[in-house]
């Protein structure tokens, strides 16, 4: 009889233990499903592979409205446009072209329109030594001053390339200088950075803490 009593006691104990466990799981005593607040998805603009600007060649390819680029709608075909300078010999940009901000080079010597534009035929560009360059393929014009960069660009070491690295399997899309650089103001414009890493526990690292101050 004693043996049977022991068995019953052990079994009852086990049942109690299991029930206890079940209760504990049910009431989430271990915090199993601690909710993690979802990290916001990154803005799709940061995933875009577009270049930072659209250039004239792109517009031609996209068959966009080019009426804004019809020079001779305003200019006289026979008479080259005249340039006006202020007393400091800085170019005065006419009102009709107020969207153009000049800033080519830090020395202020390259702000003359006809360093690059052809004054006798405004639908063309020209290098300093007089070679005519078309708007839809302008890298040789940029390369006439920026030799080493042009050399790197031709080799694929400067500028953007997308598509196929293996040219036997597919084409590569090389971007031109003006796909990224504004020819009137070439330095790469600052842009907002994409969000940084979200660690599980927010920590302000000592270097940033120092920078932000107490």
């Amino acid at each position: 009889m004693n043996g049977q009593f022991k068995t019953t006691a052990v079994l009852t104990g086990l049942v109690a233990a299991f029930l206890g466990l079940a209760g504990a799981f049910r009431s989430d005593l271990w915090d199993r499903t601690a909710p993690v607040s979802p990290i916001p998805l990154v803005n799709l603009s940061f995933l875009s592979t577009n270049t930072v600007r659209t250039n004239y060649a792109d517009l031609i390819r996209l068959k966009a409205d080019l009426s804004d680029f019809d020079c001779y709608a305003c200019h006289d075909e026979k008479k080259p446009p005249s340039l006006r300078f202020d007393t400091n010999q800085n170019l005065v940009i006419p009102e009709e072209h107020s969207d153009i901000v000049m800033g080519h080079g830090g020395h202020n010597r390259n702000n003359n329109c006809f360093n690059c534009h052809n004054e006798t035929n405004l639908v063309l560009l020209q290098t300093r030594d007089g070679r005519e360059v078309k708007f839809d393929y302008s890298p040789p014009l940029c390369g006439s001053c920026h030799g080493p960069t042009y050399r790197d660009w031709e080799a694929g070491a400067h500028g953007r390339t997308s598509g196929y690295w293996d040219r036997n399997l597919g084409p590569a899309d090389r971007k031109q200088c003006v796909s990224c650089h504004n020819p009137h103001k070439p330095p790469f414009p600052p842009r907002p950075p994409a969000p940084g890493p979200h660690p599980l526990r927010a920590v302000v690292p000592p270097t940033l803490a120092q920078e932000r101050g107490p």
Binding site: T51, R160, W165, N168, G170, C180, F188
Partner: peptide, 17 residues
């Protein structure tokens, strides 16, 4: 498959080769 990596194609500055 002959294509460039995703990080390269998205780089706005063309810094990745």
């Amino acid at each position: 498959a002959g294509r460039y990596p995703a990080c390269l194609e998205v780089c706005p500055a063309g810094a990745r080769k």
